[in-house]
């Protein structure tokens, strides 16, 4: 075996009331990697993560997580995984310290007192340790939840949108922590909607409608999609946006700040569609190299055409 796979599942399928939410999903996550999990709302990210850690039973498929069978050995998996739920799932009527102590006891940690103290110190919450968790702001709840799921020093972190609602400074701290763990061999599967976080992942799986559309090293993704692009600025951005909509050769139109990015895989067709826009008052066209975000929008558009 070339590299040790921490998650190795094949054909995972989950149906809710006849609707296939995750459809024959394969995932191979090597040890020590930060694996990004991207996809639009309702695409099945949470459901997949739950199946990987034994919280949901797959209807089909099989595989292993940390070397344990995801269907038969979920007890062993639960002991070794740190799972941070998308929705805050600690106790709002317990204090910060009580929540951490509770989790530490559930994992039967010998040095419970020390680990709770360390977690509080990392969070910088020692002074507010007796405050009820429900009274924390959204961002602080996320940070507490993250600390709670790491308290038993798991070898695998499954983080479901861990930084939703967290301020930029705390997000940077969070990613520093994840990278620090990764260097020590901890593997992370993290779902996110933020592009600045996606670029920090070593590898990304993109999921839509329960199917994996792409699974590649982050750096290679733009090249793999092979998009060409133009940045367009104009006095009134509505005008170019309207004219590019449904234009042949334009696969992606997206606003980036005060500009529009128009991208397509067919360079000739794209140029043909974009060049005439130069006549619009104040218009300026600049060729660009489309990044991750354009790539994902492209994937999403393709998926919509295929599934709807």
């Amino acid at each position: 075996m070339a590299e040790e796979l921490v998650i190795d599942v094949k054909g995972l399928t989950k149906k809710f009331g006849g609707k296939t939410v995750v459809d024959h999903f394969d995932l191979a996550v090597p040890k020590g990697l930060i694996y990004g999990f991207l996809g639009p709302n309702g695409s099945g990210k949470t459901t997949t993560i739950r199946m990987v850690c034994g919280l949901l039973k797959p209807d089909e498929g099989s595989g292993a997580c940390l070397g344990f069978d995801v269907i038969r050995e979920s007890a062993a998996i639960k002991e070794r995984v740190g799972y941070m739920t998308q929705k805050f799932s600690l106790y709002e009527d317990l204090s910060i310290r009580e929540n951490l102590e509770f989790i530490a006891r559930l994992y039967s940690l010998d040095d419970r007192k020390r680990r709770v103290a360390a977690a509080l110190a990392d969070l910088g919450l020692e002074a507010r340790a007796t405050q009820l968790a429900g009274k924390l702001s959204g961002g602080w709840k996320q940070r507490l939840a993250l600390a709670a799921c790491m308290i038993h020093e798991p070898r695998l972190l499954l983080l479901d949108e861990p930084t939703a609602g967290v301020d930029p400074k705390a997000r940077r701290d969070f990613w520093d922590t994840i990278r620090h763990y990764a260097r020590q061999g901890v593997t992370t599967l993290v779902s996110t909607h933020y592009m600045d976080e996606a670029v920090q992942c070593d590898r990304i799986a993109y999921i839509a409608y329960g199917r994996k559309l792409l699974d590649a090293p982050t750096r290679e993704i733009p090249a793999r999609i092979g998009l060409q692009g133009f940045e367009i600025v104009a006095d009134d951005l509505e005008e170019p946006a309207r004219r590019l909509k449904d234009a042949a050769g334009v696969d992606v139109i997206a606003r980036f700040g005060a500009a529009i990015h128009a991208c397509g895989r067919d360079e000739v067709a794209l140029e043909a569609a974009v060049r005439p826009l130069a006549a619009i008052p104040g218009a300026k066209l600049t060729p660009i190299r489309p990044g991750l975000e354009e790539a994902f929008i492209y994937l999403m558009n393709e998926a919509r055409d295929n599934f709807e």
């Binding site: 799972y83 739920t85 805050f88 799932s89 106790y91």
Partner: peptide
């Protein structure tokens, strides 16, 4: 109802 079951079930509790 509070959603806390998800975290609880993801721990080794029997």
């Amino acid at each position: 109802e509070h959603g806390t079951i998800e975290a609880l079930l993801s721990t080794p509790v029997r």
